[in-house]
Design a protein around this nucleic acid. Structure first.
Lengths: 165, 165
DNA sequence: CATTTAGTTCAATTAAAAATGAACATATTA
DNA sequence: TAATATGTTCATTTTTAATTGAACTAAATG
């Protein structure tokens, strides 16, 4: 351990963990850099500041700042106060429940809401129409059903994920 | 109704439905064209062939073919036989349970599996290390816990989504 | 068995998303 | 209050992903 890949600044173990979270980020439609940052913080022994992360990952200040902002936005990282240092230090939030909940509220919920808006517009369009086929009505009803179900399932999923902590 | 936007080939209602599914596609990390295709089929009165869709959406043959392939891959559309026509006709699968299940198996499961591979590699790396801190052990254990939970939650989510049909 | 029709594939192009880095804002301290 | 330190913003560049369209395979038709 402690032997860093001189090019990447990451140990073999760190690299693997980062790679894992880069994959997760991709799955969740988040920028690669967000996965990298969370990965480093997840496996870090100590809290780290923007520059620590930027240097370790060899990415730009802008990416680092934006990535940390995204991670903060859904509570995947926490800012910790370090006495005698004006820099912001970060550590990874380790409660899956909290992260999932934050993600659901910040990244999923808005989509569901705008979906609801659009569905209402679809219903309005349907009302304006004359001579609407039964099929068409049935399809729009199905859409309403799906929308409703999505809204019901999300909180249940959070309950499942948040099992213990 | 039946008044098509001459430029897009879609009625106002169709446009809204397509836009809705384009958003869903984006949320699920699928190409825009996949959302467009499913949207048109979802609201269509009759089954449609590749060329019907290509013309209606004004997209290329290649995109249409690839998009339909993706939709078939997780069972979001079905191929229907039309007597006296050699073309393949498609209609939207309307069972959310089936679509979600197909999506989970084809698009999510592989990620979970490769995640497991990577986790095993991380565990191996940890074993090779001497002088591993308690923190580090704890973090990798947490990772195992998350992985396990993801594998447990996925089938439960499918149960929830597939409520009635 | 040549021709047409349907659909796929994939190299090249285009479009979208992310990363960069310089300019900027804000807070600190000497 | 000048100089420094920290972090943000955003126009530009770079990278990645999606789309295109021509070449292709395969099947049906005449």
């Amino acid at each position: 351990m402690k032997i860093k890949d001189s090019l990447s600044g990451l140990s073999a173990l760190e690299s693997e963990v980062v790679a894992l979270f880069v994959r997760v980020a991709d799955l969740l439609n988040l920028p690669r850099s967000v996965g990298e940052l969370y990965g480093v913080l997840f496996i870090a022994e100590k809290s780290m500041c923007l520059d620590d992360l930027r240097i370790k990952l060899n990415i730009s200040k802008g990416s680092t700042s934006q990535g940390l902002k995204i991670l903060r936005s859904f509570g995947a990282i926490r800012v910790v106060y370090v006495p005698g240092d004006r820099k912001d230090f970060y550590e990874a939030e380790s409660s899956l429940r909290k992260i999932a909940s934050g993600f659901a509220h910040e990244q999923i919920q808005p989509h569901l809401e705008s979906g609801l808006d659009r569905l209402e517009r679809i219903q309005d369009l349907l009302k304006e129409e004359v001579d609407v086929s039964g099929t068409l009505h049935e399809r729009v009803e199905r859409l309403e059903n799906w929308q409703k179900r999505a809204n019901q399932v999300l909180p249940l999923v959070l309950k499942l994920i948040g099992g213990k902590g």
